[in-house]
Computed example of a mutant assay.
Amino acid sequence: MGGLLANQEKTITAATTSENLEAFVSAQFKWFKYRSPKIDITSGLNVFPSVTNMGRVRLEYDLAAKYELIKDFFLNVQFYENYDSQPSKNADPLNDWGIITSVGFTF
């Protein structure tokens, strides 16, 4: 998937705003197994090269897995990564990532 998008960024500390035009490229992968044990794996990558701020690239990556431990009881694990090559002044670091785990039951 791809295209163009416009956004408006507002900083919290300086209360300034900026309007941006970015290209958009996206790819996703999904894999499912519906027989026991049920498995659901998804992965997605979004890349936003800036048109108005040359040299700036933002990236979002997500990987998630859901595994059926026993009938209708699942373990979920998710990894995410967000990157900005040129964050605004006084902004957080270039990378933000995390791992999320959970358990769930479907009925």
Rank of each mutant, 00 (worst) to 15 (best):
M1T: 10
M1E: 10
G2C: 05
L4Y: 14
A6S: 11
A6G: 12
A6N: 11
A6H: 11
Q8H: 06
Q8L: 09
E9H: 03
K10V: 12
T13K: 15
A14N: 13
A14R: 12
A15C: 07
S18L: 07
S18M: 05
S18K: 14
E19G: 08
N20H: 09
E22D: 15
V25W: 09
V25F: 15
S26H: 12
A27E: 07
A27K: 06
K30L: 11
K30H: 10
F32R: 13
F32Q: 13
K33A: 09
K33E: 12
Y34Q: 08
Y34C: 00
R35E: 13
R35L: 07
S36I: 06
S36A: 11
P37N: 03
P37L: 01
P37C: 01
K38Q: 10
I39M: 10
D40H: 10
I41C: 03
I41T: 06
S43K: 00
G44C: 02
N46P: 01
V47D: 02
F48G: 01
P49D: 03
P49N: 02
S50Y: 06
S50C: 05
T52D: 02
N53L: 07
V57H: 00
V57S: 01
R58I: 01
R58F: 04
E60T: 15
D62G: 11
L63R: 01
A64I: 05
K66A: 06
E68G: 00
E68K: 02
L69M: 10
L69S: 03
L69T: 04
F73E: 00
Q78M: 09
Y80C: 04
Y80M: 04
E81D: 15
E81F: 12
N82V: 07
Y83L: 07
Y83K: 03
D84K: 00
D84V: 00
S85M: 04
Q86H: 10
Q86N: 11
P87V: 03
P87C: 04
S88Y: 13
K89C: 01
K89W: 08
N90A: 13
A91L: 02
D92F: 14
D92V: 13
P93K: 15
L94I: 09
L94T: 10
D96Y: 07
D96E: 13
D96F: 06
W97N: 14
I99T: 12
I99W: 08
T101Q: 08
T101V: 14
V103H: 05
G104D: 01
G104M: 02
F105Y: 15
T106C: 00
F107H: 10
